[in-house]
Design a protein around this nucleic acid. Sequence first.
DNA 1: AGTACTTTTTACATCGTTGGAACAACGTTG
DNA 2: CAACGTTGTTCCAACGATGTAAAAAGTACT
Lengths: 333, 333
Amino acid sequence: MTVTLKDVATLAGVSVKTVSNVVNGYAFVKPENRRRVEEALAATGYRPNVGARNLRRGRTGFLALMVPELSIPYFGELAGLVITAARNRGWNVLIEQTQGTRSRERETLESLGPHLVDGALVHPEALEAADFPAAGEMPLVMLGEHSLDMAIDHVAIDNVLAAHTAVSHLASLGRRRIAAIGFNPARGTSSQRLAGYRSALAAAGLSYADELVAPAEKWHRAYGAAAMKSLLALPSPPDAVFCFNDLLAIGALRAVAERGLRVPEDVAIAGFDNNEESEFSLPSLTTIAPDKTALAEAAIDLVHRRITGDKTSPPQDIQTPFALEIRESTRGR
Amino acid sequence: MTVTLKDVATLAGVSVKTVSNVVNGYAFVKPENRRRVEEALAATGYRPNVGARNLRRGRTGFLALMVPELSIPYFGELAGLVITAARNRGWNVLIEQTQGTRSRERETLESLGPHLVDGALVHPEALEAADFPAAGEMPLVMLGEHSLDMAIDHVAIDNVLAAHTAVSHLASLGRRRIAAIGFNPARGTSSQRLAGYRSALAAAGLSYADELVAPAEKWHRAYGAAAMKSLLALPSPPDAVFCFNDLLAIGALRAVAERGLRVPEDVAIAGFDNNEESEFSLPSLTTIAPDKTALAEAAIDLVHRRITGDKTSPPQDIQTPFALEIRESTRGR
DNA sequence: AGTACTTTTTACATCGTTGGAACAACGTTG
DNA sequence: CAACGTTGTTCCAACGATGTAAAAAGTACT
């Protein structure tokens, strides 16, 4: 059924190794033999057995990508880009979903041995530094901001600056009571975005108020709606809201509409992530747009370099670009 | 570095094969030895080398999932479910993205040999029957409706009936000029949904008009908006629209709003797929909700059975359930 | 022709695992 | 106690590929 090197060798009348040499582009093969082998390769339709090759080479040819859930638009988009970037470098990607729980994240990290993948890109949600396996086991690249102080390669946008940028934009519109939705002490990213929020308030001469920071257990639409609802119930509700991601913002849009208020006239709303959906929501959503392609490519590039050689140089911290995308939810029509 | 069976065997003082027997749950191992081996396994933290095992067993342990793009919500959600269902049966999933183009789809099918994966779930967009490789090469399960008349295992909801259900719902609201958005001769699913649309019109005593069927090159939001715009420009515009998927419907919502009209008062809109986003759009979207979990599990189950034995029974055609989810875009608030 | 060198090909071991045969130990039975 | 079936273990080959070293073939020079 399956064609192996041996079959090709028999057909071409040379040894198995010579065929292997041709396949791998080894220089010293007599033109005559090369031609015969290539003909045999074409005739049989030979495809290398990836498993066997990697067994021999001590590689698996796979990278893991650990994310909370593919059904979350940001991760669906990111995973698609990572797969493409990996493919371009000859890697296959295995996706592991953790639902964003610390226990599943830890289990996943443990189960990822060098026997299964050569390296991993992890986008943790709730992991603590202590959960990380003994360093040096396997190349690991962290994706997305986190508050862990660890010696691990890392690729992300500057979350503090990005949050600052979004909130400054709200302030520049003349809004005075700017709320935040999405605080969650268990999530690393949360404290970064909160810090940017606070620094922007300060820079605009606005005072910080605890009551304007609404927590969210999960960064999903329903939680954004619930948080917005409670903010609107305050004695003096906010006139602008910075949501820690677009899903929360989409939920917030709905809560505002259900209350019979208008965006941005009564409440301006800004999000974070620039999901495709946010360009078409009603109103469309002002948001921080990370360069996801750059993120995916930088991460793949980094893990690739670690796997193929560079084991020693110090952990890198790469910042990829972002932009503030101003749309109807703050600008109006 | 990596622990192999040999290391465990040395530590336990038995042969490699005995360790292998313990790992694989072979019955006849002396309790004493079993205990020693298990201790050694625990002490070393042994993990089987999947590649080597599969090389020996003649399997790869991988399934391929071919979809257009992970960034499309429906496929992100579906892929997440497929990965979970596969994981539960001990399979790993490799995702291949085709961008929905026929050439990439064909290339992908060709590159998927038994050397790389043991089976594949394919969700074609533009493939023709002629593009399929000689049957019997490798277990293949088709996902989603298509108009190909082929002897291949297939899992999907009844698209004709589902479209019929959605359009009947629109008719039951008293709408008389019901349009459709998304026709595309190159897409298999398109003709199924059009058929359901037509049969529902007929059942409601409404006449079919070509001008009310708007084509869409891609089933993305922007194309839905463009199509809706052209429908609204008709001398007598529709009072309801059935969109062939939710993304088109989201685009349509925006076009209606930009025209200054209301949904559902002026135009009722229904979609198809029940993306998570559709529950929170403004207004929320009435849509056909396929049971995606059932779809993923049925597909994995089927390909699993084909791989492990059942090569002979005739191709199956499994229909998974769906429901009509009635929301604000037709019902109103 | 003999030597030294380079180019090309081959045989063999090996990666980590499992299937099968061979072998050893054991208790039963006639 | 010899013959036997059962249980438990080990040895060896194999999955398909590649690295190594050695053999073979070719070239150039004394």
